[in-house]
């Protein structure tokens, strides 16, 4: 963990409610995909946890949905502004378990951390397949960016306005392989039930600190109480007690 002052390079809407913010600053504390940042927003007491969607030499990309006052105010910040961000938080995805044909399953703003994961897995020469689920056509983002990495992409929309009609679980391949999932809880639980093999889930909880000090984010797991911020946010399937 490291507190870093970042400068906003760009902050643009990808869809009506989803924004992409690019920032420049020291990202040396990030170890890999699945880790997150805690962003201090002027006027708000708690920081906002947002996943690293992409990491560059000296740059960080955050993709966030405006769901409340904090992310709403974030969407109005302009290039040049400085933001205090805690970097390198949490334990990310375990790339060593990917196998040759990993499956990435993302829903809504669960898609962003999978972009960085897809990028790293492609760098390792893996045949990445991604299922990206959205509600409707106008909410789709980053489909082209995933394709540009050379990933095989299947888009699903609940209303059928683009791609496969239905949920991510309606587009599962014959042989899923090792999977990495991130998205809203009902989607994650559906994936947990639908995919028989091994994989990893990225979870969300409301956080007080984001670095393990307050016990605000604890869940019960197969190996006892775990803090989503410090021991997660990525958990292996067998760690979760979601039943069958």
């Amino acid at each position: 963990m490291k507190e870093v002052s970042f400068r906003i390079l760009s902050n643009r809407p990808l869809t009506g409610e989803v924004f992409e913010m690019k920032l420049s600053g020291d990202v040396s504390d990030f170890r890999g995909p699945g880790q997150f940042a805690e962003v201090a927003l002027p006027g708000f007491f708690l920081r906002r946890p947002i996943s690293a969607a992409d990491l560059g030499e000296n740059s960080l990309t955050l993709i966030y949905k405006t769901v409340g006052k904090g992310t709403g105010s974030m969407s109005r910040l302009t290039p040049g502004a400085e933001l205090s961000i805690l970097t390198g938080l949490g334990n990310g995805y375990d790339l060593s378990r990917a196998g040759e044909t990993p499956l990435l399953i993302g829903g809504g703003v669960g898609v962003p951390p999978l972009y960085l994961l897809a990028k790293r897995l492609r760098e390792e020469g893996k045949a990445v397949r991604a299922i990206l689920g959205f509600n409707t056509k106008s909410e789709i983002f980053y489909e082209e960016e995933f394709r540009a990495l050379g990933a095989g992409v299947t888009v699903t929309t609940v209303d059928g306005s683009a791609g496969t009609k239905g949920f991510v679980t309606d587009a599962l391949p014959e042989k899923p392989g090792y999977f990495y999932a991130c998205g809203p809880l009902p989607m994650l639980r559906a994936v947990y039930r639908a995919v028989p093999g091994a994989g990893e889930f990225s979870l969300e909880e409301r956080m007080g600190c984001g670095f393990g000090a307050c016990m605000g984010c604890t869940i019960e797991t197969a190996s006892g109480p775990k803090r989503v911020c410090r021991d997660g946010p990525v958990f292996r399937k067998e760690e979760l007690l979601w039943g069958k």
Binding site: F44, F45, L46, G70, E205, R206, M207, G208, C214, M215, G216, C217, T218, I219, E220, P225
Partner: peptide, 14 residues
């Protein structure tokens, strides 16, 4: 174990 989550909520200035 403590209480079920959510365990944290934001307030004005706290």
């Amino acid at each position: 174990f403590g209480n079920p989550t959510p365990r944290i909520a934001e307030t004005p200035a706290g």
